[in-house]
């Protein structure tokens, strides 16, 4: 029993420590943003990796989720004679929840893990020390370009996922399940507002921040050896998933109240 409590305590302390380190990392990034010129070449490379190369997976994720969601809604709403209400339901769900969350999970898996693995490898092969020895501040050189690229890319990717979801929902409902297209679209426009889109984009922005900070933190704090790299990678994905999902719950209430 005491052992169990001890372990729980250690876990809790570990979490607090991680949170502290992440806050410092964030503060360091902010300082570097003000103090150093932006390295555009690295930024472009990161935008290409984080943003451009994620487009296909985000299109597939958004599209298919929108498609199945529209289909399931239609199956249920048909009995009530409300098939044309599928449009706004899909649109609002995509904007507010499914688009940002699923897009973030995809990016955490594709980009957050790669970031953690790359930084961890750089750490264990002394490349980060080499950078420091060559009079370059690692946060400025390694983290800031990734940060900016993530902050630029993720809201756009979320927008893309939302559009693809709504588009695919329309296609499935109207062309496969034969819901009248004009009603479907009219209802979608009528019940979906700027607020819904803003909620999606703002969530995307913060999820991007979460993925970035966790990926970089795990990479920079990896322990030695190949095992350390592997651990950093998996932990970055699992932690990012969990924190995104929990944060999403609070964002849902917060953003609904303030926007």
């Amino acid at each position: 029993m005491t052992r169990y409590a001890q372990e729980l305590g250690a876990r809790f302390m570990g979490m607090l420590q991680m949170a502290g380190k992440i806050v410092f990392l964030f503060w360091d990034i902010m300082r570097c943003l003000v103090r150093y010129p932006i390295r555009f070449k690295l930024l472009v490379r990161q935008i290409d990796f984080i943003g451009a190369k994620s487009v296909p997976v985000v299109i597939i994720t958004g599209g298919f989720i929108g498609a199945v969601f529209a289909a399931q809604c239609e199956f249920q709403f048909r009995a009530l004679g409300m098939s044309s209400a599928v449009g706004p339901v899909v649109a609002i769900a995509m904007c507010r929840e499914l688009g940002p969350v699923l897009c973030a999970l995809m990016i955490a898996g594709r980009v957050g893990s790669a970031m953690a693995a790359e930084l961890a490898t750089m750490k264990i092969t002394e490349q980060i020390d080499a950078l420091r020895a060559l009079a370059v501040y690692p946060t400025e050189y390694l983290i800031v370009p990734r940060f900016l690229a993530m902050m630029i890319s993720l809201p756009i990717l979320v927008g893309l996922a939302i559009s693809c979801g709504i588009g695919a929902g329309y296609f499935v409902a109207v062309h496969i399940l034969e819901v009248p297209g004009v009603y479907y679209w009219n209802n979608t426009e009528k019940f979906t507002g700027d607020k819904d889109i803003w909620i999606g984009v703002v969530k995307g922005f913060f999820f991007g921040l979460i993925i970035l900070l966790i990926g970089c933190h795990k990479g920079l704090n990896a322990s030695q050896g190949a095992e350390g790299v592997g651990l950093a990678t998996t932990e970055s994905v699992v932690d990012a998933f969990i924190i995104v999902l929990i944060a999403n719950f609070f964002f849902t209430f917060l953003l609904n109240a303030i926007l």
């Binding site: 092969t125 002394e126 020390d129 080499a130 420091r132 020895a133 009079a135 370059v136 501040y137």
Partner: peptide
């Protein structure tokens, strides 16, 4: 601090054990 060390390191060079070249 780490940042205050940066200018001093402009006067130093280090050869790491396994090279530590940037991949």
């Amino acid at each position: 601090s780490e940042e205050e060390l940066v200018p001093l390191r402009k006067e130093t060079g280090m050869l790491f054990q396994n090279g530590a070249l940037f991949d």
